[in-house]
Design a protein around this nucleic acid. Structure first.
Length: 436
RNA sequence: GUGGGCGUAGCUCAGCUGGUAGAGCUCCGGAUUGUGAUUCCGGCGGUCGUGGGUUCGAGCCCCAUCGUCCACCCCA
């Protein structure tokens, strides 16, 4: 019978890698807490129409990357390919946007049917941040400052570049679209195949094309900046001043247009050259029209999402290494099976009395020699030993495993707990450093 | 969807021009009846990704297929 294995592009995360991810996530959460952002959770599955309308049905994501299926009642459902649409739906459905502002974040898996490669998976995890009800550019700057604090916290600030652009108001964007179309239509037969397909559906995306011939044609294309109305220009100019005030360096890249239809005004990507082809670690922007488009009252919104797999790869390559995974403090073993009950109980009492202590109890059977081998392999600093004698006299033997030939000592449990109450003695010397 | 590299033990990998499947690590046992990490000895572990073909004979050559990695594309 064929072996069952994980679905293509949906990799398992093994203990070492997961420890790294948990560390990264903890650091990110610490920053979010400092900013006072509130956490929400959306379902992984939404009505297909939410993404068709929210993300835009001319986008690559909706056109060819969604996991869409019918449930047993025949309703069309989709595994979320991104978080913003669902977050807006959540806010609308529960009245979170009525006469109030929101600063929210969420984290979880997203699903896109693409060919897997480095930093790109079919199930991948994003941490997303969305703010609602803030029309002015201050929140744009706050979010970019939040990102910058993330990078500093993880030690990857040198590896990331902020690329910034503005699409202007929906009116500006529409005006530019018309201007671009007027310029490109006569040149249509010189465009590459993808760009021709995009010409009517999503012409701004052509700016993003990496085909050299197409880029050459674009050299004389109308300038988006020239189509910006006064208010759009003021918004962008103010944002740039705020970024200067926050000492956040950036480059304006007019080619950043983003692949999701809902963006207006500010759009940005944090990119790196350290991860191969998938260089965007974090991307986002303002989407002032989205809430209305999904049936709500006009509400300004702005947000970003970052790919935790990519970010973790970057931290591994360039960032602050997490402290070595804390090894066990104590490994409890009975010398044979007859005292397993006492060993289990000892472990439990230690954990209750000293919650900071990490305690593992031997559960694998075997002879004394095998038990000590396990104790050693566990990385624990001390083995707590229960044999015939100890159980008889109500004591426990404490054997240091990482201090050369330090002597084994015998304690009553209350005395040992008292002895360790202020923490274990600091490890002696670096030569005994042990992983895991 | 397109292109290229790679699939041999749990892991990392060798395997000559086609001629009886190997090493290191890990794990288990013994040397040592209640004491680990060193050392020595022994052991477990494989439909060589899968299916077909060529051949007296295939891990090796051919075809197909699946997986994986990288790139295009796209994005997180």
């Amino acid at each position: 019978m064929a072996k069952i294995q994980s679905i293509r592009g949906m990799p398992d995360v093994l203990p070492d890698a997961s420890a790294m991810r948990l560390w990264v996530e903890d650091r990110l959460k610490a920053v979010l807490a400092r900013y006072g952002y509130a956490h929400v959770r959306m379902p992984l599955v939404e009505a297909t129409a939410l993404f068709a309308r929210g993300v835009g049905d001319g986008t690559d994501i909706v056109e060819k990357e969604m996991y869409t299926f019918e449930d047993r009642s025949g309703e069309s459902l989709t595994l979320r390919p991104e978080g913003t649409a669902g977050c807006v739906r959540l806010c609308e459905e529960h009245g979170l946007l009525y006469n109030q502002t929101q600063r929210l974040w969420y984290q979880g898996p997203m699903f896109r049917y693409e060919r897997p490669q480095k930093g790109r998976y079919r199930q991948f995890e994003q941490l997303g941040v969305e703010c609602f009800g803030f029309p002015g550019p201050a929140i744009d700057a706050e979010l970019l400052g939040l990102c910058a604090d993330f990078w500093r916290e993880l030690g990857v600030q040198e590896a990331l570049t902020l690329e910034l652009n503005t699409l202007g108001s929906p009116e500006s964007r529409a005006a530019y679209r018309d201007a671009l179309l007027a310029y490109l239509r006569p040149l249509a037969d010189q465009l590459d195949e993808d760009s021709q397909r995009r010409l009517e559906r999503n012409p701004l995306r052509i700016l993003d094309s990496k085909v050299p011939e197409t880029q050459a044609l674009l050299a004389d294309a109308p300038d988006l900046a020239a189509c910006l109305d006064e208010a759009s220009r003021a918004h962008f100019d103010a944002l740039r001043r705020y970024l200067d005030a926050l000492a956040i360096p950036y480059v304006v890249n007019p080619r950043i247009v983003r692949g999701l239809d809902y963006y207006t005004h500010t759009v940005f990507e944090w990119t790196t050259t350290a991860l191969g082809a998938q260089g965007t670690v974090c991307g986002g922007g303002r989407y002032d029209g989205l809430v209305e488009r999904l049936g709500g009252r006009p509400t300004p919104g702005i947000g970003f999402a970052m790919g935790l797999e990519r970010l973790t790869l970057l931290v591994e390559a360039h960032g602050a290494a997490p402290a070595e995974a804390a090894p066990l403090d104590v490994y409890v073993l009975a010398l044979d099976e007859t005292h397993s009950a006492e060993a289990l109980a000892l472990g439990q009492r230690l954990r209750q009395a000293l919650p900071a202590l990490t305690v593992q109890v031997h559960c694998s059977g075997g002879k004394a020699k095998a038990r000590f081998k396990k104790a050693d392999a566990s990385g624990a600093r001390y083995a707590l030993i229960l044999g015939e004698t100890e159980v008889a006299e109500g004591t426990v033997a404490v054997k240091p495993l990482r201090e050369g030939d330090a002597a084994q000592t015998t304690w009553t449990l209350p005395a040992l707990i008292d002895h360790w109450r202020e923490g274990l003695p600091s490890p002696s010397g670096t030569d005994v450093a042990t992983r895991r």
